[in-house]
Design a protein around this nucleic acid. Structure first.
Lengths: 236, 236
DNA sequence: CCATTGCAAGAGCGGTGCTCTCTTTTTGGT
DNA sequence: ACCAAAAAGAGAGCACCGCTCTTGCAATGG
């Protein structure tokens, strides 16, 4: 696949990477709205029109950065999860959630790019879906493990939502009780509410000690999904 | 205060309002990033430089729109609350939450303006604080009513958060148990996570039947704050 | 009545995304 | 080894943006 390749192809991938790096730098410094193709080109010593050989438009550059951001966040969450791989589900849940928060605080503009308001007039292409799903899959896996080892209490679910929850389970969380899937999706959204409020300043002059506040909220989120506070030792 | 005033002052307030209206229209159509002073002026039949007599910069126009959006959202929530004024706290809670969601779905770009990622390089001035607090105060009032009538179960709170929660209670929710205040702040953030995920397309291809999904999630949010599912009749 | 003030208009500066043309360089088939 | 084709860079240019400055006009109030 990625064999030696000609000098031209090699240069292309290198320049593409350089453009993304520079763009990511400007994104981190000024935010998505001020990301300017001309400024990126200027910084790289090329003329602005040359950049269009690599990204057909500013939106395409942004899309590439979005996918990278999803992947970076997903990798951070996965690596945090691996460091507690053997632990009880609740500990793994909080580890993943805290990794999400940590990544968001470290990369605020990238987080805003993917979970803030979408850049107006811009709709993310389907290409972003697999990268975007990584954190969700991680949480699903944790809850599934808990369920398979008897560490999951099914949360309540009104009858009118049962069908919807069953469809969701079949679609992307097979083997999980529908009650847990519905609660998990809600918890997932709520997690990003907590992170977003902290990141975007809504907690200013309200919550001071944010790290323990977040940790506690995340544990209660896990309880809401049905993860038991302390699982039994009976797991195979 | 707003007595007859001269023709000049009258014209000024009218033109200011016209500018905001046109800007709001463009905001609704294209989003904040594409809101252009020149386009607003063009549409109003004036030259762009004339607009600077009314708003010293694009950011100031945006700030005015932000305050209006907060007030519009707050008014929607308050009016929804009034229609169920005598009901049990849980019903009032869900009414307010659903009003927030309804307003957000009806005014997506304005919602993005205030609860999405902040416009990069822009930090909201303190002027926005009172308008921004209206929904929060509403929820605090509902929980306080429940507490005063014995319809509140204090949620769990780890010891390390007690001091922080007491400070928060003293700051903006006097008379409420600190446990409830901490849970309420978290629930508030989580509410906006739910709304944001639906609004910004994160639920696409995941949640189809969103209204009942949201209603159920909001009820569970209320339980998390300590609002009892069915309050006793014993209230004075 | 007239000076002061408020406002609209226009030109202009430096910036943006993007397109088009022209030239240079690399590539790959004959 | 050559040479057409493809790829890449350079530059000019279009239409737009926020914002500033100067100029002329009209309403205001002493």
């Amino acid at each position: 696949m990625s064999t030696v390749k000609g000098a031209r192809a090699r240069a292309r991938t290198e320049i593409t990477a350089a453009i993304k790096d520079e763009a990511r730098g400007q994104l981190a410094k000024e935010g998505a709205a001020k990301l300017s193709l001309r400024a990126v080109a200027r910084e790289l010593g090329m003329v602005s029109s040359a950049l269009y050989r690599y990204f057909p438009s500013r939106d395409d550059l942004l899309t590439a950065l979005i996918i990278d951001a999803y992947d970076s966040l997903g990798a951070a969450a996965e690596s945090a999860h691996e460091t507690v791989a053997g632990a009880e589900p609740l500990a793994r849940w909080t580890a993943v959630c805290e990794a999400v928060r940590g990544w968001a605080l470290a990369h605020p503009h990238e987080y805003a790019l993917i979970y803030g308001s979408p850049v107006p007039g811009y709709t993310a292409p389907l290409t972003t879906v697999p990268a975007a799903a990584r954190v969700g899959l991680l949480l699903i896996g944790i809850v599934r493990d808990a369920h398979e080892h008897g560490g999951l209490t099914e949360p309540p679910l009104p009858a009118e939502l049962l069908g919807e929850a069953e469809r969701m389970a079949a679609d992307f969380a097979p083997g999980l009780p529908p009650e847990a899937v519905a609660a998990l999706v809600a918890a997932w959204a709520q997690l990003y509410g907590l992170v977003g409020f902290e990141l975007f300043g809504q907690f200013n002059r309200m919550v001071e000690d944010r790290e323990p506040f977040f940790r506690h909220a995340v544990v209660r989120l896990a309880h809401g999904v049905g993860l038991r506070p302390v699982p039994p030792e009976e797991q195979a």
